[in-house]
């Protein structure tokens, strides 16, 4: 008779991992994605930090945040609209998985992708003697940030469209301002008061500040504030993504 995964947890894990593996194979293991993942954050960071006479240690937190941000949130926005257009989403949804399982697989793949690109930067820091004051916490925070940005990408993809360009436009319109109003490119202490007030709305502000605390390179807020804000933003993105996707699924399927 029917041989299944034994229990629901095993089944859940196998499903999430299979969707993650599918995403990596289809979307992430591509030359242009890899090049964009490395070059874009590096050039953006270099444009702001080079020539300002800052030490690598001072800019490391920003480079890590930018890399995690761009890599983790780069592909997730387009998966749902692309799969709606390709008519593969309905094929997936008719199997014994839930929308939550599918999104968990997407977030996991994106988190892994972000971590793969962030690891060499962290390791380079270690080689240069720039080690976080709490390595385990640093790793946990980077994983949390990668998951948070992956969820943000999934949140954008809840737009019930089968045209990836619609979502890319929306995500760029939100992501770029999030960078410029945060303290990623300019330390918070150097921001004018009016921009400092706006910067608290950007999750990147807390992520970068927390990493600055971990690298002892001038944090602005207390570490606990940064950590709580990081957890809140990550949870909000994940919960929001799940809720919106469930809400827009019917409209999405009507697109095809």
């Amino acid at each position: 008779m029917m041989k299944t995964g034994g229990n629901s947890l095993t089944h859940l894990w196998r499903s999430v991992w299979s969707i993650c593996w599918k995403d990596i194979k289809i979307y992430y293991a591509k030359g242009p994605i890899v090049v964009t993942g490395v070059l874009f954050p590096l050039f953006l960071w270099a444009a702001f930090y080079m020539g300002r006479g800052l030490e690598f240690k001072e800019g490391l937190a920003s480079l890590i945040t930018l890399t995690v941000f761009f890599t983790s949130s780069s592909v997730t926005p387009i998966i749902a609209p692309w799969e709606t257009r390709q008519r593969t989403l309905e094929m997936l949804l008719s199997r014994p998985v839930t929308v939550t399982t599918i999104l968990a697989g997407d977030i996991l793949a994106s988190t892994i992708f972000g971590l793969i690109f962030t690891s060499p930067i962290v390791i380079s820091g270690v080689i240069l003697g720039i080690v976080p004051n709490n390595v385990l916490l640093a790793v946990a925070v980077i994983v949390l940030i990668a998951a948070g940005f992956s969820s943000l990408g999934v949140l954008f993809s809840a737009l019930p469209t089968d045209t990836p360009a619609d979502v890319v436009l929306l995500s760029s319109a939100v992501k770029l301002p999030l960078i410029f109003i945060s303290g990623v490119l300019t330390p918070l202490a150097q921001l004018p008061p009016w921009l400092l007030v706006i910067s608290v709305a950007s999750p990147l502000t807390y992520f970068t500040d927390l990493l600055r605390w971990l690298y002892a390179s001038g944090a602005f807020f207390p570490a606990v504030t940064d950590l709580v804000a990081t957890v809140v933003f990550t949870s909000a993105f994940t919960a929001g993504a799940l809720k919106l996707h469930k809400k827009t699924l019917s409209a999405r399927l009507q697109r095809r």
Binding site: T4, G5, T10, R14, R95
Partner: peptide, 10 residues
């Protein structure tokens, strides 16, 4: 095999 894994099969 992707679909098979979605059924939780080993």
């Amino acid at each position: 095999t992707l679909v098979g894994r979605l059924y939780g099969l080993p």
